[in-house]
Design a protein around this nucleic acid. Sequence first.
DNA 1: CCACCTCGAGTTCA
DNA 2: CTCGAGGTGG
Length: 684
Amino acid sequence: MTPSDPDGAAARIARLRELLAHHSYRYHVLDDPEIGDAEYDALYRELQELESAYPDLVTPDSPTQRVGEAPVSDLVKVDHLQRMLSLANVRSAAELRAWIQRMRNFLAREGIEEPSFEFVAEPKIDGLAMSLVYEHGLLVRGVTRGDGQTGEDVTHNLRTIAQIPLRLRGAEPPALVEVRGEVYMSLPDFQALNERRAAAGESTFMNPRNSAAGTVRQLDPRLAAGRPLSFWAYQLGVVSGGLGFATHRAALEWLREAGFPVHPDIRVLASEDAVVAQCEQWQQRRGSLDFEIDGVVVKVNDLELQRRLGVVGREPRWAVAWKFPPTTAVTTLLDIGWNPGKFGDLHPYAMLEPVHVGGVTVKQATLHNEEDLARKDLRVGEPVIVLRAGDVIPQVVAPAPHVAERSARPQRPRPPEHCPVCGTRTVKPEGSVFTKCPNHACPGRRIQLLTHFVAAMDIEGLGERQVLAFMERGWVQGAADIYRLREREEELVEIPGYGETSVRKLLDAIEASKTRPFGRVLFAIGIEEVGDVTGRALARQLGDIDTLLNASPDELEQTPGVGPKMAAAIHAQLADPAMRALIAALREHGLQFAQERTLGREGTLAGRTIVLTGTLPGITREQATEMIVEAGGKVTGSVSKKTDYVVAGASAGTKLARAEALGVPVLDEAGLLGLLATGPDVKS
DNA sequence: CCACCTCGAGTTCA
DNA sequence: CTCGAGGTGG
């Protein structure tokens, strides 16, 4: 039948969409269908026919549009509305209890005594965390977690997942709501997919997680639609326009009502013991679920308490992941290899008879350092225990049982006497856990150093492989030579894998790297103890390379985060002639070796550290703190030589005495107010 | 002096 | 992602 008037069609289309959304929900989310597949298909086809007759009436939330999108050409990076955090891990009941105790301590310091905790325990699904944004009830965007700050837009693939509603159920959806959850592939779906692929002569996937990850990042949604993904919702993110919940549990209920799958066995638990019992129970059930879980997430139920607990680093204080013990396997230790790091340290690694463990095949594992190797008492040729859990890097933990009791065991592995790369006699510096190749020109360590440089300078199109190719041809020996590649434009094209365009791109990227700020350059040139944060801090503190090169260890120590040890190490390395030569050469090429000397944020007290002591006559301690922070300063509790000022009121105590001993300027309230208004006098 | 936090460094597999 | 160590704050 074909309705003759568009208005009748519009009504029927709307009705069909409602019906289809309802039945899809019953089938995919509730797992309780009301109609058979044939009936559903009939409704779906009717909608398809109507929509093709009236293309103007097609809307993005129509069930027919789940697979309708054209392939995207690239995955677009998108900033999250709110950072996606990671979770601290606990591996035992004791650690879980310690976490709860830490929260109590923290809250006590905040003035909340005896908080009444309730917890929610949820299975931690081994999939991919996703952020879904709904505007006025309509799915507008789905983004992968990425680094927590920025993820990739994979909306086109998420729309193909039947368990993700295109439109929220229920009237009055909020203006904007962000739903967080996990996209995963169920074990039966994974097996079926692999069987299909094997039958078709295609490669099979390693594990459900990789399979889901590969699918979500497909450019063509039709490919994704052919691979069965599922979804669990577990958290509300940003919400604007309605929805005020008191508890996490209530938020989950709302998610369920809005049409998302929420795991049915998520419980509110009132005591530590109950939480531990629940975690252990999930651990028992682990093998009988039809999806993989690698732990249990435990959250504080009360959202106001969550807010008070806040975030430390990249982790919320109010949630932890209870991690299950990792899976292990036994395999043979074939040999121990030694790799030079970027500072010449020789790092031992285990070469293993390939073994399947925790969803991947492991054939290599790091042994960190000689102490680690000795502690584990490993011998080449013997069976060893290999461990790997979900997202954990594989580890060799010990010799297989009984091996250690054998009477005739192979020799203990020893660090090489000669560098395995350049043959130079190795040295073992006093107090170091590493044997070192002392040869600064050792190709092994140069590769590492150069690879680090190009990564730090964000030079795209230049990875370890290309660095190696350039070094083998003798075109590049150190970082400065990168900036001479321009002179070899014609020769570059001859390298396999390089065409005219990629050479052009590479040279442009190299040119662009000259604008990287001073702090990043300091990180890139490879100074031990200096990572990107300390690099930036040094740049801010010293301002330019000459000041830095002439700075005494004491002056370096004024930098936030730099103590005596780091100061001494940095000072010594900067004095090295090879380092000076590298800096001089890079300077010639026009890299950034100076920057505005901004100590902290804007404000009259930017970068200053102030300690308050005693009672001020006119303002409270809180007000004073707020004013100082407002002006870009920092308030700390104890006086050190990094303290710029001490503000002392009535009945000041030991802090005042210490300030006088250290020669730190002491102010009264009026002095503080003056300082806030005009800023510190410029020190000569 | 201790506890917590931050930073640096190395690393596996697809 | 995890480990260890240095640094900072209480």
